[in-house]
Design a protein around this nucleic acid. Structure first.
Lengths: 139, 139
DNA sequence: CATAAATTTGTAATCATTTCATTTATTAAT
DNA sequence: ATTAATAAATGAAATGATTACAAATTTATG
């Protein structure tokens, strides 16, 4: 996705494609690292002159409201963001703190018996040790 | 579960059954309300003389480490606790903020293809509007 | 009982996030 | 283009949950 495509994508979802918004969305879709606000800030501060952390909070909150990003609450003390809003699960490694996506077909998602409930969001996540870190520990 | 059973349960899981620990665990298993630390504090302060919020944090962290309680990270700004450590999902209502358990059989849980990963925890949660609040809105 | 070890307490520190008033950028109209 | 009106970005200060830590208390052990 280049700047043009990102702008179009935001516009289609009711988000005015302003400079910083486009750059932050571009960061999310190109890095796919499920970053915290701090990670985004440290990486983009070099690229965007005079970027403020508050702006990142504002933009991300807007993204989440507009359904172009997900807020992941895996650990209690940090929110991580994901531009992939399709159905998928997340694995968080306790050692390296990295988050890895894994595909789940919608049909595989268990459907709970909740008569009369309106379900807006489904989240499925795992915690453990990723294969890379597991290998390190063995060695 | 009475005090005796709770003490035995804690002991079996490597947690010394001290007074406040037993009372906090008793609260969790009897109320089943997925409380925050503040909810536990406001309810138990009347019952336990000179209870400190720090103690609740300490005890809950110990419970989670010892696998006798789960820390639920559904909303970014609060951790909620659950003494039911068996496989089940959680639904959080956006309106009344209540959390409702729902059964999922272990077999129904989707198994991701994560070769060489060690999976310690599985979490499945939904957000939306519960039937009770949905009815209110309609009316 | 007395002592040592573990736990609880309360205050202060920390950290992520939000609030808010001000400044700056963007859009629309002239 | 210029200007006026609107929306967004900024930074400092406030908030709120959680943790750190030293002192006081409780629990287990000889």
């Amino acid at each position: 996705m280049d700047q043009q495509q990102i702008s179009a994508y935001l516009l289609k979802n009711g988000v005015r494609p302003l400079q910083k918004r486009v750059k932050i969305m571009n960061y999310l879709v190109s890095k796919r690292n499920h970053p915290t606000v701090d990670m985004i800030y440290s990486d983009l501060i070099h690229e965007i002159n005079g970027l403020s952390k508050t702006t990142i909070y504002n933009v991300l909150n807007l993204f989440v409201e507009s359904n172009v990003a997900l807020a992941l609450n895996i650990e209690g003390n940090e929110i991580r963001y994901d531009a992939d809003t399709s159905a998928h699960g997340h694995f968080k490694c306790k050692i390296c703190t990295g988050i890895i996506d894994f595909r789940i077909k919608k049909e595989e998602m268990p459907v709970p018996m909740l008569e009369g409930f309106r379900i807006d969001e489904q989240h499925y996540y795992l915690k453990g040790v990723c294969s890379f870190c597991a290998n390190k520990i063995e060695a």
